[in-house]
């Protein structure tokens, strides 16, 4: 646990003791603000049946910047160590490979979670500073942050895998983006081919856009929670083996 803590703190420092993490934080806060402002404008112009939370987290702006976060957060993780050769020093120290993988994942995930503090504050300010009854409930808000945390967990594990595969940050970022697009595409298959196809149930089960809609309405599904956690663990397991492969390939 001590080794994990040391590695985790070192990774966290690379996000927050450099302009890098603050730039992402600044960018995402700005985009969250835009998304909220655009949605509020829509609310004042038209009558909207959905809650504010649901509309904000399903707005086009949200979808654009949300997908952008993961390659940026994860592309450096392993590829930079591979490129500079520091991976050799790291893995010849008495550390276990899973500690390395988990610490890097955890640091990226922690950074990702801190990005949503701003969004939380926005909604709090809405209730605290206006005398209008909030156009959302706490259940919807909890559901929204829960699904963002879950999707983030999976997407960061995709990013870890992409980064471990290469020694180029650019390639890692591109591969991560491809995996994300493919993931999103799978979830949209029933939309393209119709709900009547036999595999529609499966594609709906793994569809992140659909989960976003459900959870931001306050519909929390434990099956979905299980799906995200197990899939993220699986991709971290693959990342572990990519790193450890070096140690046992003949």
């Amino acid at each position: 646990m001590r080794i994990f803590r040391i590695l985790y703190l070192k990774e966290l420092k690379t996000y927050f003791l450099s302009p890098f993490g603050w730039l992402i934080l600044c960018f995402s806060s700005l985009m969250q603000g835009f998304a909220l402002t655009a949605t509020l404008k829509e609310f004042t112009d038209n009558a909207v049946a959905e809650s504010l939370v649901s509309v904000v987290f399903n707005s086009p702006i949200f979808n654009i910047y949300f997908m952008f976060l993961f390659p940026v957060l994860t592309m450096r993780l392993f590829s930079e160590e591979n490129r500079s050769g520091t991976i050799e020093g790291l893995l010849t120290a008495p550390v276990r490979t899973w500690q390395v993988v988990l610490s890097k994942f955890s640091a990226a995930y922690t950074t990702f979670l801190t990005l949503w503090i701003a969004a939380g504050v926005h909604f709090y300010l809405f209730t605290a500073l206006t005398d209008v009854p909030p156009p959302f409930t706490n259940g919807e808000l909890i559901g929204a942050f829960l699904i963002i945390a879950l999707i983030g967990m999976l997407f960061i594990s995709y990013g870890c895998l992409a980064s471990a595969l290469t020694s180029s940050q650019i390639i890692a970022g591109v591969v991560c983006t491809f995996i994300l697009i493919f993931h999103m595409f799978l979830g949209l298959i029933p939309k393209f081919f119709g709900e009547q196809i036999p595999a529609a149930g499966f594609f709906n089960f793994i569809s992140s856009p659909r989960h976003l809609v459900d959870f931001t309405r306050g519909l929390i599904n434990t099956g979905t929670i299980g799906y995200y956690i197990t899939t993220a663990v699986f991709f971290l397991f693959l990342t572990f083996h990519i790193l450890d492969f070096r140690r046992w390939k003949p």
Binding site: G85, E88, G89, T92, P94
Partner: peptide, 13 residues
């Protein structure tokens, strides 16, 4: 690995 102090080629830091 606990018993070794290793300085790799080109000293990656």
């Amino acid at each position: 690995r606990k018993k070794i102090g290793y300085m790799p080629e080109n000293v990656p830091l």
